[in-house]
C-alpha cells in the first residue's frame, strides 16, 4: 500500500475579530493533536501574541526582525523635494530648511533613497519586532512579536512563517481581523478554521473572514464558540453559503473561568477538547476531501 503524507500541512486558525476564542482553539488543537502526530504551533497574532499564556514554554532562541528608516544628511540635501514627492506613505515632509522623517509612517521601502539625486539619504536599521522559538508541552512553539508603536506587522508574520517545519502539522494562530497581517498568515495554508460567536457582531465579522479566506483561496470551516449566548444567524448564514460548521462549543462558565485564569480549557475541559477534535475531523472530512 502506498503511504500518503498528511493532507493537512498548515492549518490556520483565524477570526474576523479578536476575543472569539481563536487562540484557545489553536492551542487546544495543538495540545490534543500532539498526542497522536507531530505538530507545531505558531502564534502569528503579532500585535497581541497570547498563546504562550496557555502553555508551558521554554524559549530556546530569538531572531530580530528589522526594517529601515531614512536619515537625511542636511549638508548634502539641497531640498529638491523629490523624496517627499516619491514617498507613497507621507513619511517625509519639507519644513522650512529641512526634510523631516516621520518614522511611524515609514514603511522602510527605500524609495526616497533611490530617488535622491544627491545621495543625501542613508538608511539605518531599526528593530520592528522579533520571532521567538521554543518548546511548549512537547511540541515546537514559535511566536512573532511586533514592537509597541510599530505600524507594519506583516514582515514579522513572514519571518515567523519561516519557522514552519514541513515535517509537522503547523497550526497557525492568525491575527484577528482581515488586514494585511491576517492575509500574510492565511496565505499558503491548506485550510482554515474560522472561529466566531453566535451573535450579530460575530456574524458580521465572520462574513469578512470568509471573504478573505476565499480571496486567498484557503478552504475554510467554521467553529461556533460560546454557542447558546446569541441567536442562530451564524448557522443560517453558513448553511446558505455552504460553509461547513465544524463544531459548536457550548457557552460554559467553567470554560470561560478556566480561560480567564490562563488555564487551557483544552487541558481541563472534556467538552472543549472533544469540540476541537471534532472540528479537525470535520475539516479533514468536509473541507479537504
Amino acid at each position: 500500500m502506498r503511504r500518503r503524507g498528511p493532507l493537512l500541512m498548515i492549518l490556520a486558525v483565524a477570526s474576523g475579530k479578536g476575543g472569539t476564542g481563536k487562540t484557545t482553539v489553536a492551542v487546544g488543537l495543538a495540545l490534543a493533536l500532539s498526542e497522536t502526530r507531530p505538530v507545531q504551533l505558531l502564534d502569528a497574532d503579532v500585535e497581541a501574541p497570547n498563546a504562550h499564556l496557555f502553555l508551558d514554554v521554554t524559549w530556546t532562541g530569538e531572531r530580530r526582525v528589522v526594517t529601515w528608516r531614512p536619515r537625511i544628511d542636511p549638508e548634502a540635501c539641497d531640498l529638491c523635494g523629490l523624496c517627499v514627492e516619491a514617498c507613497e506613505f507621507g513619511a517625509l515632509a519639507r519644513a522650512g530648511e529641512k526634510i523631516l522623517v516621520f518614522d511611524e509612517l515609514c514603511h522602510g521601502c527605500g524609495v526616497c533613497r533611490r530617488v535622491c539625486p544627491r545621495d543625501a539619504i542613508t538608511e539605518i536599521e531599526v528593530p520592528l519586532g522579533k520571532v521567538q522559538v521554543g518548546e511548549a508541552d512537547g511540541f515546537p512553539f514559535a511566536r512573532g512579536v511586533l514592537d509597541v508603536g510599530e505600524a507594519t506587522a506583516t514582515p514579522v508574520v513572514h519571518a515567523l512563517k519561516r519557522e514552519i517545519d514541513p515535517d509537522r502539522l503547523a497550526i497557525l494562530d492568525c491575527p484577528p481581523g482581515t488586514g494585511c497581517p491576517t492575509i500574510a498568515s492565511l496565505r499558503g495554508a491548506d485550510a482554515a478554521i474560522l472561529v466566531t460567536e453566535p451573535t450579530p457582531f460575530g456574524l458580521h465579522d465572520l462574513k469578512a473572514a470568509v471573504s478573505v479566506a476565499r480571496a486567498v483561496g484557503v478552504p475554510a470551516g467554521v467553529v461556533v464558540n460560546r454557542d447558546g449566548i446569541g441567536d442562530d444567524g451564524v448557522l443560517r448564514w453558513c448553511e446558505e453559503e455552504g460553509i461547513p460548521v465544524l463544531a459548536r462549543i457550548p457557552f460554559d462558565r467553567e470554560i470561560a473561568a478556566l480561560y480567564a485564569e490562563g488555564r487551557n480549557p483544552a487541558r481541563e475541559s472534556a467538552t472543549f477538547r472533544e469540540a476541537v477534535l471534532a472540528a479537525l475531523a470535520g475539516l479533514e472530512r468536509e473541507v479537504l476531501a
Partner: peptide, 29 residues
C-alpha cells in the same frame, strides 16, 4: 483593536482613552 498603525491613528491627538478589558490573563497582557 491591536496596537499597530490603525490604533496609532485613532489615538494621536485624542483627549482621552477608555480601555475595555476582560479579567483574563491575556486580557491584562
Amino acid at each position: 483593536p491591536g496596537i499597530g498603525c490603525p490604533v496609532i491613528a485613532s489615538v494621536t491627538g485624542v483627549d482621552g482613552a477608555v480601555l475595555v478589558t476582560e479579567p483574563t490573563v491575556s486580557g491584562l497582557h
